[in-house]
Design a protein around this nucleic acid. Sequence first.
DNA 1: GACATCACG
DNA 2: GACGTACGTGATGTCC
Length: 930
Amino acid sequence: MSFGKGCHLHLIDGSAFIFRAFHALPPLTRKSDGLPIGAVSGFCNMLYKIVEDNKGPDAPTHVAVIFDKGSHTFRNDLYDLYKANRDAMPEDLRPQMPLTREATRAFNIACIEQEGFEADDIIATLARQGREAGGRVTIISSDKDLMQLVGGGVEMFDAMKNKRIGTEQVEEKFGVGPERVIDVQALAGDSVDNIPGAPGIGVKTAALLINEYGDLETLLDRAEEIKQPKRRQTLLEKRDQIELSKKLVTLDQNMDLDFGLETLEVRDPEPDALLGFLNEMEFRTLTKRIADQLGVEPPAAPEIAPEANAPDEPEDLPFEPETYECVRDAAALQGWIDQAYKRGYVAVDTETTGLDEMRVDLVGISLSVEPGKACYIPLIHKTGDDDLFGTGALAEGQMDEAEALRMLKPMLEDASVLKIFQNAKYDCKIFTRYGVNVAPIDDTLLMSYAQNAGLHNHGMDTLSDTYLNHTPISIKSLLGTGKSAITFDKVDIDEATKYAAEDADITLRLWQLFKPKLHQKRVTTVYETLERPLVPVLAKMEMSGIKVDRDTLSRMSNAFAQKMAGLEAELHELAGHPFNVQSPAQVGEILFGEMALEGGKKTKTGQWSTPAQALEDLATEHDFPARVLDYRQLQKLKSTYTDALQEHINPDTGRVHTSYIQSGANTGRLASTDPNLQNIPVRSEEGRRIREAFVADTGKVLVSLDYSQIELRILAHVAGIDSLKQAFRDGHDIHAMTASEMFDVPLDEMTPDIRRQAKAINFGVIYGISGFGLARNLRIPRAEAQGFIDRYFERFPGIKDYMDDTVKFAKEHGHVETLFGRKIHTPEINAKGPHAGFAKRAAINAPIQGTAADVIRRAMIRMPDAIENLPATMLLQVHDELIFEVEEGAVDDCIPVIRDIMENAADPAVHLDVPLTVDAGQGANWAEAH
DNA sequence: GACATCACG
DNA sequence: GACGTACGTGATGTCC
């Protein structure tokens, strides 16, 4: 039936409804697997009402549900900040997006979306067509942006409030008729969509002005006449901005649509399809009600077998590498992309030619959408035979790389499709280098880390073995080892498919297993606020890198080499024969064998132990150990720093790009590798000079900000030590204060040595102090050290209580927690023997170190937004320090902003009783900035 | 690949 | 009563 007079078109604003339903309705999850379905439920109930009303006098003859699609529209081209302040889609809503499309189709209602257009524009176009054809139109929505369409047979209906919105209601809201709504919106702006409007003018004033002057254009032309000076000035100065705002709020009523209104005719639902869907969603009431209405038997409710969902029961679906698909053309790839959209999630893995994300080439991509179902898309695999350049020719049967990425990019960047990785940071960095900014992501490695830190590592092999009872194909079996190892692009495509697709399959299975457990184990907040959002932050820092001056390092290396040669000759002379100075075994033999020095200890393997501490004792009497110490220091600086760092300078960027391991330390700290930039020397004068090689780029400076005494402050807070807390509030020297309390020395009589001892005790406390450890550190008799500790606990009884309570908690629960809820497991805490001591001290230290780690993570996660409009880039993190590269001249603007974020990073989740203070430094290089 | 050593917070 | 200990990391070289 064609659309015309007497027809009634219902246009349902699907996207807006889902968001509103999601926020308005209590969270509801599917019983069998915990899938969030609250918004889908609200949506289906609304559709049901429409089906029910189909019999009524006001029944629609035509109906459609319209959704937004894609995030980039013509409005973004007009104004790049359009909707820029929108929050990311809530985690629980994302999987519901594709389900609402499915629901629409199940109800046999036209489901409409068009890439690059907002639902509002499609609605506007359809409404105009309906109006012009002489029919009635009802827009099911309460979105004020649609109110401009009301009138001439078009009205709106708020389905959640059950309220009709006609011309009167629009006038009530905007103070003008529907035809002038866009003028008012252009002036008033909209903070939700980030439409600027005229600053200082809201809806009330805007309506007043429009009613006085008739329309926006007249108002702007005659703005000079306005009496209020501020208002007049705004309208004159912001004319461009206001006109732009009008363009942004004006809906496009003339879109090209590839269907006519007649295709939207109301159709009865197919009972099987509709009831099948509702049953699958486990909507019991609705299924029954609709079955009754349709006059058919409701389908049997799905069986919920409790065992199938027992938390620790891995699914038994076998792994069958032969069944994985090798995707070799666009049609096959499109099928997988469609699957990803349909489900709203997809596991992704990349294969590359190596491990350095900044340099390697992408070789292929694998995807998985359900357990056992995965594919591999080979892109640049080579044939076995080398060509003239030894690179090998491209193997047959692979998609063009650019084409494959072009097809995948919209899906990988689409907010409604969750991309699941094992170690997302690695793959995201690769994709970024190929022009794809992957979001949103989930990461099974981090999910495991949030749940299981302290129990085991979180690599794919461990996780697959532990949770899926399956040992994945080893990469070594494909690449070989050592010198004869090949790169992944040389691997036969069939073999590569089995390996790569399996990784995606495993990732997806792990995700399905871990997802509900986050909640069960009470670590959803940790994962969502401390792990997942850190991934893009770290990826950006790593890709930024830090500039390192090769010449400085090279000169230092040469100087070290010369000194070492001199020392080596001297040592051979002293020993009376040549030997390898770098061999602790040989040094030990000379010291304690040939020279027969006293006090030598042996390591557990029976060789003489020669650590620096032991050599220092001997060095007061003998030259030999003193020279060994000198040699070792230089050897360390040269091999680990001045030589190795040069190798790490990326030839393309001239910078060093470290890699942070987010799951590296059980406590929540980061670890840095390849190279480790968290242990660049600073304590010795000679070593510190290496920091001079870390420089700011031309026209910029390095800025370093670090938390002062953060762990001691956290200890004062968690142990509730009032005197310490007060000392921090007053900005006192905490070590001097401790010394004064302990040794009854007034502050003005404090000596550096007494203070040094108190400082060692303060640190010892954080580490789970022992008399032996303190004695060794301070080089005092053990009894004396124990005396210090007893005294300390006497003066600060709260600390002793904290330590005992923490150990007790660990023994009871098998884990300890940071203030932010991070759990660190302590499986050895109930062990007997020497293990127990280690576990106890680790348990005491973990909440303190871990809380500090959580605090700086929170600061880092907030940093990108805070410095968005400042010429500053965050480069490095060294546990309690952040290093930025800042444009010269902007330093004084940046430091207060960064400091503010760092000092208040604990709030509002945790309010510390002690202030956190941050010291800042700046300079042309890291030595100066620190 | 285990071990010893030493760089950092 | 003896044991054998400061907490958390990563990189390097020797030696088997």
